[in-house]
């Protein structure tokens, strides 16, 4: 099958065989069998089909729209399907300023997400309050929920958001399948008063 894309009067030929397929995790291979640990297989599957929940409040949300648009296309990384419902979402992408009025809402959304869940703070405001060091702005979402990846920028370019997303994928790929049972994770959530 041959797809033809037109871009700037150059023709790009994309052959199906050139489409990248993720590498298999390390394991023992022999004729007719392949053995690896369950964690790795699950990590592989999870990391390439993450459903992000875009919690877009301001400027970074517009850059996220650009990231989802045809030009940058987050769908290439297995995140084609946005989950606006927290119940089905895997990654909470917090984009934009979180005011103190919004903080309980954000925490509520995080609590509603099912395990396993990851959080990405996109942009300066979500990471640290950014330029808004004021009475009404939460100085970083890590005051109310734990964060896995911070993406710098005000707003970050779509490339940066994609990079941050890949860092989340790395985390998902390499961590234990049942992170939620670890003492460290329980302590972490305990610090935020969640459960």
């Amino acid at each position: 099958m041959l797809l033809i894309l037109q871009r700037d009067e150059h023709f790009l030929f994309i052959n199906m065989s050139e489409i990248n397929i993720v590498d298999a995790p390390p394991g023992i291979e022999g004729s007719g069998f392949f053995a690896t640990s369950l964690d790795k297989v699950i990590g592989l599957a999870r990391s390439n089909s993450l459903w992000p929940l875009p919690f877009a409040t301001s400027c970074c949300g517009i850059e996220f729209m650009a990231t989802m648009g045809s030009h940058y296309d987050l769908g290439r990384f297995g995140a084609e399907r946005l989950s606006f419902s927290p119940r089905q979402a895997d990654v909470l992408m917090v984009m934009g300023t979180i005011a103190k009025k919004m903080a309980p809402v954000l925490k509520q959304v995080y609590i509603q997400m099912a395990e396993p869940r990851w959080v990405m703070a996109v942009g300066a405001c979500a990471s640290s309050g950014g330029i808004f060091d004021t009475y009404s702005v939460l100085q970083g979402i890590d005051e109310v929920i734990p964060v896995d990846v911070y993406v710098p920028g005000c707003p970050p370019r779509p490339e940066a958001i994609l990079d941050g997303f890949q860092r989340i994928q790395d985390l998902v790929k390499n961590e234990s399948g049942r992170r939620r049972n670890s003492d460290y994770y329980k302590d972490l959530l305990g610090q935020y008063g969640i459960k």
Partner: peptide, 26 residues
């Protein structure tokens, strides 16, 4: 309309600071 109901002050009055006075990390 913009602030939380329990803010207690009217923040644009000149006597109130811009930054959150309760911050401990700064």
């Amino acid at each position: 309309i913009l602030n939380m109901d329990d803010l207690g002050v009217h923040p644009m009055l000149k006597q109130y600071p811009l930054e959150d006075p309760n911050r401990v990390d700064k």
